[in-house]
Nucleic acid binder design. Sequence first.
DNA 1: AGCAAATACCTCTTGCAACAAGGTATATAT
DNA 2: ATATATACCTTGTTGCAAGAGGTATTTGCT
Lengths: 116, 116
Amino acid sequence: MYMANPSFMNGVPELLILRTLDTGEMYGYELVQAIRARTNQAIRLGEGVVYPALHALEREGMLKSRRKLVNGRTRVYYALTRKGEKHLAGLVRHWQHITDAIGLAIGGTAHAAAML
Amino acid sequence: MYMANPSFMNGVPELLILRTLDTGEMYGYELVQAIRARTNQAIRLGEGVVYPALHALEREGMLKSRRKLVNGRTRVYYALTRKGEKHLAGLVRHWQHITDAIGLAIGGTAHAAAML
DNA sequence: AGCAAATACCTCTTGCAACAAGGTATATAT
DNA sequence: ATATATACCTTGTTGCAAGAGGTATTTGCT
């Protein structure tokens, strides 16, 4: 029987979303641009990634939302729950662990890579 | 019309494989263990990931292979081509670029994450 | 001698994350 | 008027990575 495991590289959008919301309450559209800004435009998550992720994270109790009417437009603000903060801390640790490991593998004894 | 783009996070196994082969010719089974060793067991790519990747990379001209009979067992040794070396250099640059960006996003002004 | 584990190669099927595209609606700027 | 920006959303596609399993030889254990 085949039991799939998530790739060790998955969940980076989730990490970026939670980490960005950890700087303060934000709504989806704002989040999309904030992530671009925070990564110097290097990472550009689209709305098709962010909105479904927000809904899933709220369903899992990592986020809580409140609707707010601003200028006739409805905004849905998301904030971290205690659970979300703990989860974020774990994600950050995991990310650091694997990037350290990859950095180690990349940085080791080199041939062609030595002359970068 | 839907035209898929690879996720910005994909291709890490490819990077690890090429980078490890850049330390010298290696065969598949050896590579699997070498990657574990080089990452302090943090990343454990299985044969179901490595072998198909090796075949694809050879098809794309990134690797060249030669068969060798050792102790009655057949080993297929893979080595980087010039093209593979250039490709690797690009992958390393790209990896550094996005991990720098994520590090920036993670490291920025924090609330809960500040107390790690 | 017999059996398990290690060595060494391989393919098949599946799950899911991330993505592009497109849809609705209001406000603002030209 | 018309386009762009704001603000929300869902749907369908694709391909990566993973697990599982298959073949065969050799080595180590008892």
